[in-house]
């Protein structure tokens, strides 16, 4: 439903970033992506709701990639790649 709503708004010209200029960006830029996979070591913890812990982990990864969303690809890579590892270390400290 969310996708269809976005599509409809794009078709109606209601979203400036859903135009070719918005999607493709300036000529030197490539269409980037936030898609990726991470495997974290996150031991099951007694007394902790694991679904909530996983949801929280998902949100933290999302924040990392979304914060770098508008950066050119090289900078995005430089900013994002070390951060899931930091997040991993953080999980162990918690």
């Amino acid at each position: 439903m969310m996708w269809r709503r976005l599509l409809r708004r794009g078709i109606r010209g209601e979203t400036p970033s859903a135009t070719p200029d918005g999607v493709y960006g300036p000529p030197e830029r490539k269409v980037g992506s936030l898609a990726h996979d991470c495997i974290f070591k996150m031991p099951l913890r007694h007394g902790v709701d694991d679904n909530e812990a996983m949801r929280d982990m998902g949100r933290r990864v999302t924040e990392i990639v979304m914060a770098a969303e508008d950066l050119p690809h090289d900078e995005q890579q430089a900013v994002v790649i070390p951060r899931p590892e930091e997040l991993q270390r953080q999980i162990f400290r918690e």
């Binding site: 976005l6 936030l34 996979d37 495997i39 099951l44 996983m54 990864v61």
Partner: peptide
Amino acid sequence: TGGGNGIIYVATRRMDDQHVWNRI
């Protein structure tokens, strides 16, 4: 994402008692 030009899904699964898989 992208000011309304995209969507991500964030799916997190428990693989075993040690690992979780996070996918976007």
